[in-house]
Amino acid sequence: MQADDTDRRLLRHLQADPAQPVAELARRANMTEATASRRLERLRKRGILKGTQAIIDWRALGWEVEVSLRITLDKTDPRAFDGFLAAARLVPEVLEIQTFLGRVDVRLNVIARDMDHYREIYRARILTLPHIADIEALMHVAEIKRGESLPL
């Protein structure tokens, strides 16, 4: 069962301000608080609404470097993907892990306080990850657009 127009209206207002109380969310979505609560619970049960989160600006906390690593794995070992992903999850500076079909198998998004710190992470934690056949680093220069909300 898909979300209807009322659900999408509720989700639009929730995306705009996830911290707002349900009473305010209901008012903005033009429904009663009880209806908003029921609909939110139904959206959670159906897996459409997975929760709310705090988005922290890690740059404001002194993490100045972001690098996207494109990694090709040695696919001669059938355990390469699982072994690599399990090890990569343990690197605290890896913010994001994505897998792909094609020449590049995995992308890691890595942050560091500065270039010296990045070199330490790269040498001690990234290059020691198992099953790497090739690695390409792309230095993040600027964020032009980041989609935090859906066009509901």
Rank of each mutant, 00 (worst) to 15 (best):
Met1Lys: 04
Lys50Trp: 02
Val67Lys: 13
Glu64Trp: 02
Trp63His: 03
Ile121Ser: 01
Lys145Glu: 00
Ile56Arg: 15
Arg59Ser: 09
Gly47Phe: 05
Lys75Ser: 03
Met139Arg: 14
Val67Gly: 12
Ile97Glu: 01
Pro151Arg: 10
Val65Arg: 11
Ala36Pro: 03
Glu143Pro: 06
Gln15Tyr: 10
Trp58His: 11
Ile48Met: 01
Glu64Val: 02
Thr72Gly: 13
Glu41His: 13
Leu127Arg: 08
Glu24Lys: 15
Trp58Met: 14
Val94Thr: 08
Arg44Leu: 13
Lys75Tyr: 02
Leu150Val: 02
Val104Leu: 07
Ile71Tyr: 11
Ala80Glu: 01
Asp17Thr: 14
Gln15Arg: 10
Ala133Asn: 10
Leu43Arg: 05
Ala124Ser: 15
Ala60Gln: 09
Ala16Gly: 05
Arg89Thr: 09
Glu33Tyr: 12
Asp134Asn: 13
Leu138Tyr: 05
Arg107Tyr: 11
Arg89Met: 09
Arg28Ala: 12
Met1Gly: 05
Asn30Lys: 12
Val106Asp: 05
Thr72Lys: 14
Gln98Val: 13
Arg59His: 12
Gly102Asn: 08
Lys75Cys: 04
Arg39His: 14
Ala124Ile: 12
Arg119Thr: 06
Ala60Val: 04
Gln53Asn: 13
Arg70Lys: 06
Leu150Asn: 03
Glu24Ala: 15
Leu49Gly: 05
Leu14Pro: 14
Leu25His: 07
Gly47Arg: 07
Glu93Val: 12
Arg59Ile: 07
Arg28Leu: 11
Leu95Glu: 01
Gln2Lys: 15
